[in-house]
Amino acid sequence: MSGNGNAAATAEENSPKMRVIRVGTRKSQLARIQTDSVVATLKASYPGLQFEIIAMSTTGDKILDTALSKIGEKSLFTKELEHALEKNEVDLVVHSLKDLPTVLPPGFTIGAICKRENPHDAVVFHPKFVGKTLETLPEKSVVGTSSLRRAAQLQRKFPHLEFRSIRGNLNTRLRKLDEQQEFSAIILATAGLQRMGWHNRVGQILHPEECMYAVGQGALGVEVRAKDQDILDLVGVLHDPETLLRCIAERAFLRHLEGGCSVPVAVHTAMKDGQLYLTGGVWSLDGSDSIQETMQATIHVPAQHEDGPEDDPQLVGITARNIPRGPQLAAQNLGISLANLLLSKGAKNILDVARQLNDAH
């Protein structure tokens, strides 16, 4: 009898209710805020589980004197976190989706994509230029951005401005803007500013005609071990179906173009009346040469937790077992079709030249 009692006690200790789920994140304040929001949602869904947040620095956090596009290494903000995932030191990792490459290392998958916040870019102005827009900034004003995508589009749109690289986390960039006289304004992701509670610093939100956004911008991705079915089931509740389908289309477009950090590629997606609209573009580094096109596809946005595919093969690095396969494939095909259209119009040449120029500098 006593033996059975011990077995029952052991089973209770090993039951999922007692389990601590370890969540990996970057150390920056924004990353911690984003991770806290994901953990809060998981806690609400699984009140019996405990969650421990483990923060670590990544290569991208450490190399702050070089433009991201020049470092010449993929997975700048993800490699150390993936290493911890691989060694079973954490069970899942919360990322900004735009930091996750469209091809993940073997053994990993994006197990959830959370509801997207505003994906557009924002302009934050130096205190002396508050009330201005990019259009009304004085001639030769210097605007800071760490992104080739932003610089290429904005140089084309605002030729009277000069664009220079600015690195560091959000706090560091804002301090550089406010305390030094080098920059009249800087460009940042609206979602990051909003998550930090800095709505009052948003001086201008850039519309798609001015600057399309990065693939996955404004959404959070939760990376897990691809074979860890328990954790895949656990994080599945975080999937937002519309965000998922938009981001599958965007990531398929980028992957098929073979774009990345070192080339200016941008997108804009919208879901309306059962249609998914995808606009994508590529630019030369100075913005003088560009190709942009829009395509659409009829896609039914499923309700969360309709029964999805059981075999769960990944699409552009994403596993969404609780979302039907048909809409996911339709979104992926839309991204591939748009990429093929741009490639047929000469996108590869623009991107190759951009890559060579970026590598040469």
Rank of each mutant, 00 (worst) to 15 (best):
residue 20 V to A: 09
residue 20 V to G: 07
residue 22 R to P: 06
residue 22 R to N: 10
residue 23 V to F: 13
residue 24 G to C: 09
residue 24 G to M: 06
residue 27 K to G: 09
residue 28 S to Q: 01
residue 29 Q to V: 07
residue 32 R to G: 11
residue 32 R to D: 05
residue 32 R to F: 07
residue 33 I to E: 03
residue 33 I to L: 11
residue 34 Q to F: 04
residue 34 Q to C: 06
residue 35 T to P: 01
residue 36 D to S: 12
residue 36 D to M: 14
residue 37 S to E: 10
residue 37 S to L: 12
residue 40 A to C: 15
residue 40 A to Q: 07
residue 40 A to K: 13
residue 41 T to L: 09
residue 43 K to Y: 08
residue 43 K to I: 12
residue 44 A to I: 09
residue 44 A to T: 12
residue 45 S to E: 10
residue 46 Y to D: 10
residue 49 L to R: 07
residue 51 F to L: 11
residue 51 F to R: 01
residue 51 F to D: 07
residue 53 I to S: 08
residue 54 I to K: 11
residue 55 A to C: 08
residue 55 A to V: 12
residue 56 M to F: 15
residue 57 S to C: 10
residue 59 T to N: 06
residue 60 G to I: 01
residue 61 D to E: 14
residue 62 K to V: 13
residue 62 K to D: 15
residue 64 L to Y: 14
residue 65 D to Y: 10
residue 65 D to W: 08
residue 65 D to C: 06
residue 66 T to S: 13
residue 67 A to H: 04
residue 67 A to L: 09
residue 68 L to M: 14
residue 69 S to K: 14
residue 69 S to A: 08
residue 70 K to W: 09
residue 71 I to N: 10
residue 72 G to H: 09
residue 73 E to Y: 10
residue 73 E to N: 07
residue 73 E to V: 09
residue 74 K to Q: 15
residue 74 K to W: 01
residue 75 S to D: 06
residue 76 L to A: 06
residue 76 L to T: 10
residue 76 L to K: 14
residue 78 T to F: 01
residue 79 K to F: 05
residue 79 K to H: 12
residue 80 E to K: 09
residue 80 E to Y: 01
residue 81 L to M: 08
residue 82 E to S: 10
residue 82 E to H: 03
residue 83 H to F: 11
residue 83 H to G: 10
residue 83 H to R: 13
residue 84 A to W: 06
residue 85 L to E: 03
residue 85 L to G: 01
residue 85 L to S: 01
residue 85 L to P: 01
residue 85 L to Y: 01
residue 88 N to T: 13
residue 88 N to K: 14
residue 90 V to E: 06
residue 91 D to F: 01
residue 93 V to G: 08
residue 94 V to H: 06
residue 98 K to H: 01
residue 99 D to R: 01
residue 99 D to E: 06
residue 100 L to A: 04
residue 101 P to I: 10
residue 102 T to H: 15
residue 103 V to R: 11
residue 103 V to L: 08
residue 105 P to I: 07
residue 105 P to K: 11
residue 107 G to S: 10
residue 107 G to I: 01
residue 108 F to E: 15
residue 108 F to C: 10
residue 110 I to L: 09
residue 111 G to K: 04
residue 111 G to D: 03
residue 113 I to T: 06
residue 116 R to G: 06
residue 117 E to Y: 11
residue 118 N to E: 14
residue 121 D to H: 03
residue 121 D to P: 03
residue 122 A to L: 05
residue 122 A to G: 11
residue 122 A to K: 04
residue 122 A to V: 13
residue 123 V to P: 05
residue 124 V to E: 04
residue 125 F to E: 07
residue 126 H to Q: 13
residue 126 H to P: 11
residue 128 K to L: 11
residue 128 K to T: 15
residue 129 F to D: 08
residue 130 V to F: 08
residue 130 V to E: 15
residue 131 G to E: 09
residue 131 G to K: 08
residue 131 G to I: 05
residue 132 K to P: 12
residue 132 K to F: 14
residue 132 K to E: 12
residue 134 L to H: 01
residue 134 L to P: 04
residue 135 E to G: 09
residue 135 E to W: 11
residue 136 T to H: 12
residue 136 T to Q: 10
residue 137 L to A: 06
residue 137 L to E: 03
residue 138 P to T: 10
residue 140 K to H: 08
residue 140 K to W: 14
residue 141 S to N: 14
residue 142 V to N: 11
residue 142 V to L: 10
residue 143 V to T: 06
residue 144 G to L: 06
residue 144 G to M: 12
residue 149 R to I: 04
residue 149 R to V: 01
residue 150 R to G: 04
residue 151 A to I: 05
residue 151 A to Q: 14
residue 152 A to T: 13
residue 153 Q to C: 07
residue 153 Q to F: 01
residue 153 Q to D: 01
residue 154 L to S: 06
residue 156 R to Y: 06
residue 159 P to E: 08
residue 159 P to W: 05
residue 159 P to K: 10
residue 160 H to R: 14
residue 161 L to F: 07
residue 161 L to W: 07
residue 162 E to N: 05
residue 163 F to S: 08
residue 163 F to L: 14
residue 163 F to N: 14
residue 163 F to T: 14
residue 165 S to R: 09
residue 165 S to W: 05
residue 165 S to H: 11
residue 165 S to I: 09
residue 166 I to M: 13
residue 167 R to P: 04
residue 167 R to K: 06
residue 167 R to I: 08
residue 168 G to H: 03
residue 170 L to D: 01
residue 170 L to H: 09
residue 172 T to I: 08
residue 172 T to V: 06
residue 172 T to H: 06
residue 172 T to E: 01
residue 173 R to W: 01
residue 175 R to S: 11
residue 175 R to K: 13
residue 176 K to G: 07
residue 177 L to W: 01
residue 178 D to R: 03
residue 178 D to G: 13
residue 178 D to A: 07
residue 179 E to N: 12
residue 180 Q to F: 03
residue 181 Q to S: 10
residue 182 E to A: 13
residue 183 F to S: 10
residue 186 I to Y: 03
residue 186 I to H: 07
residue 186 I to N: 06
residue 187 I to Q: 04
residue 188 L to M: 08
residue 189 A to P: 03
residue 190 T to M: 03
residue 190 T to C: 14
residue 195 R to T: 01
residue 195 R to K: 03
residue 197 G to A: 04
residue 197 G to M: 01
residue 198 W to D: 08
residue 202 V to F: 01
residue 202 V to M: 12
residue 203 G to M: 01
residue 203 G to R: 04
residue 204 Q to W: 01
residue 204 Q to S: 15
residue 206 L to V: 07
residue 207 H to K: 13
residue 209 E to S: 05
residue 211 C to K: 01
residue 212 M to E: 05
residue 214 A to T: 08
residue 214 A to Y: 01
residue 215 V to W: 01
residue 215 V to G: 14
residue 217 Q to Y: 06
residue 218 G to F: 01
residue 218 G to A: 05
residue 219 A to E: 05
residue 219 A to Y: 04
residue 220 L to D: 04
residue 220 L to G: 03
residue 221 G to F: 03
residue 223 E to P: 04
residue 225 R to C: 11
residue 227 K to N: 06
residue 227 K to G: 04
residue 228 D to I: 01
residue 229 Q to G: 14
residue 230 D to N: 11
residue 231 I to L: 04
residue 232 L to K: 13
residue 234 L to K: 12
residue 234 L to G: 04
residue 234 L to Y: 01
residue 236 G to N: 01
residue 238 L to C: 04
residue 239 H to P: 07
residue 239 H to Y: 06
residue 241 P to W: 14
residue 241 P to S: 14
residue 242 E to L: 11
residue 242 E to A: 14
residue 243 T to H: 11
residue 243 T to I: 08
residue 243 T to L: 01
residue 245 L to R: 03
residue 246 R to L: 10
residue 246 R to A: 14
residue 247 C to W: 04
residue 248 I to F: 11
residue 248 I to H: 01
residue 248 I to Y: 01
residue 248 I to S: 08
residue 251 R to C: 04
residue 253 F to R: 01
residue 254 L to V: 11
residue 256 H to R: 11
residue 258 E to S: 07
residue 258 E to Y: 13
residue 259 G to E: 11
residue 259 G to C: 10
residue 259 G to S: 11
residue 265 V to L: 05
residue 267 V to Q: 01
residue 268 H to I: 03
residue 270 A to Y: 06
residue 270 A to K: 15
residue 270 A to W: 07
residue 271 M to H: 15
residue 272 K to V: 15
residue 273 D to S: 04
residue 274 G to Y: 01
residue 275 Q to E: 05
residue 275 Q to C: 01
residue 276 L to E: 03
residue 276 L to Y: 13
residue 276 L to M: 14
residue 277 Y to N: 10
residue 278 L to K: 01
residue 278 L to R: 04
residue 279 T to V: 08
residue 282 V to A: 09
residue 283 W to K: 01
residue 285 L to R: 10
residue 285 L to K: 09
residue 285 L to I: 09
residue 286 D to C: 07
residue 286 D to V: 11
residue 288 S to R: 03
residue 289 D to V: 13
residue 289 D to L: 08
residue 290 S to E: 15
residue 290 S to K: 07
residue 290 S to N: 09
residue 291 I to P: 09
residue 291 I to N: 09
residue 292 Q to K: 05
residue 292 Q to P: 07
residue 292 Q to H: 14
residue 292 Q to D: 10
residue 292 Q to R: 09
residue 293 E to T: 03
residue 294 T to I: 13
residue 298 T to C: 08
residue 300 H to I: 10
residue 300 H to T: 14
residue 301 V to I: 13
residue 302 P to A: 12
residue 302 P to V: 14
residue 302 P to S: 05
residue 302 P to D: 12
residue 303 A to Y: 06
residue 303 A to W: 01
residue 303 A to M: 04
residue 304 Q to D: 01
residue 305 H to L: 10
residue 305 H to Q: 13
residue 305 H to Y: 15
residue 306 E to F: 15
residue 306 E to Q: 13
residue 308 G to Y: 01
residue 308 G to F: 01
residue 309 P to N: 15
residue 309 P to I: 06
residue 310 E to K: 09
residue 312 D to M: 08
residue 312 D to I: 01
residue 313 P to S: 14
residue 313 P to C: 06
residue 313 P to I: 15
residue 314 Q to V: 11
residue 315 L to E: 01
residue 316 V to D: 10
residue 318 I to L: 05
residue 318 I to Y: 10
residue 319 T to V: 01
residue 320 A to N: 01
residue 320 A to K: 05
residue 322 N to A: 01
residue 322 N to V: 11
residue 324 P to G: 06
residue 324 P to L: 12
residue 325 R to Q: 14
residue 326 G to S: 11
residue 326 G to Q: 01
residue 326 G to P: 11
residue 330 A to F: 07
residue 330 A to G: 09
residue 331 A to C: 13
residue 331 A to E: 04
residue 332 Q to N: 06
residue 332 Q to L: 08
residue 332 Q to R: 11
residue 334 L to Q: 01
residue 335 G to D: 06
residue 337 S to C: 11
residue 338 L to T: 09
residue 339 A to Y: 04
residue 341 L to I: 01
residue 341 L to C: 07
residue 343 L to W: 15
residue 343 L to T: 09
residue 343 L to R: 14
residue 347 A to I: 03
residue 347 A to P: 15
residue 347 A to G: 01
residue 347 A to F: 03
residue 348 K to L: 14
residue 349 N to V: 10
residue 350 I to F: 14
residue 351 L to D: 14
residue 351 L to C: 15
residue 352 D to V: 08
residue 353 V to S: 10
residue 354 A to T: 14
residue 356 Q to C: 01
residue 356 Q to M: 01
residue 356 Q to E: 13
residue 358 N to A: 15
residue 359 D to W: 13
residue 360 A to P: 01
residue 360 A to M: 01
